[in-house]
Design a protein around this nucleic acid. Structure first.
Length: 155
DNA sequence: GCCAACGTTGGC
DNA sequence: GCCAACGTTGGC
């Protein structure tokens, strides 16, 4: 089982939205590296740190899990959708996604500042300068520390 | 709203 | 295939 970090702007789709929906297709990813993680590396049951970006404060707001294999992102076929992809054909999609299922809300969230303050997390991709990838792998050693941080506040 | 950093596009 | 211009991300 692998760990991932997936960013979402809470004003667009928050952990509360995921809690309400239970499960959601992760539409709108338009970055090849992020797509390739979903297409090639994610497995059903992988755990996901749900990260609120462009938020105040930004941080890990919940836990989720990968709930499907990869399949075409339907928004790429919809000419009225902001994520429309003119190059995509039904039999040759460009963008794929997975479903994400709600696990747990983290309240208060683990802020970016708190993540930065933990020396053992210094190697996380999230903290790398200029790193903007919206889907990132999380190393097991980092995941364990994050889960411990979360446990202490949810106990 | 600013701006650094990065990915993508397109002219050559 | 280079690289400048442009658009986007995301913390502040």
């Amino acid at each position: 089982m692998n760990f991932w970090l997936m960013k979402s702007e809470p004003s667009v789709y928050s952990i509360d939205d995921l809690a309400r929906d239970g499960k959601t297709p992760w539409t709108g990813v338009r970055n090849y590296q992020a797509r390739n993680f979903m297409r090639d590396a994610m497995r059903v049951g992988d755990r996901v740190f749900f990260y609120h970006s462009s938020a105040d404060p930004a941080g890990i707001a919940g836990l989720a899990r990968v709930a499907s294999g990869p399949y075409p992102d339907p928004t790429q076929f919809d000419a009225r959708n902001e994520y429309f992809e003119p190059r995509a054909k039904r039999n040759a999609p460009v963008w794929v996604l997975v479903d994400i299922a709600f696990d747990q809300k983290i309240e208060p969230l683990v802020t970016l500042e708190q993540i930065r303050a933990e020396p053992a997390l210094a190697g996380m991709l999230l903290l790398k300068r200029g790193q903007r990838l919206s889907i990132q792998p999380v190393e097991p050693v980092h995941a364990r520390i994050l889960l411990r941080l979360i446990d202490t506040r949810c106990a």
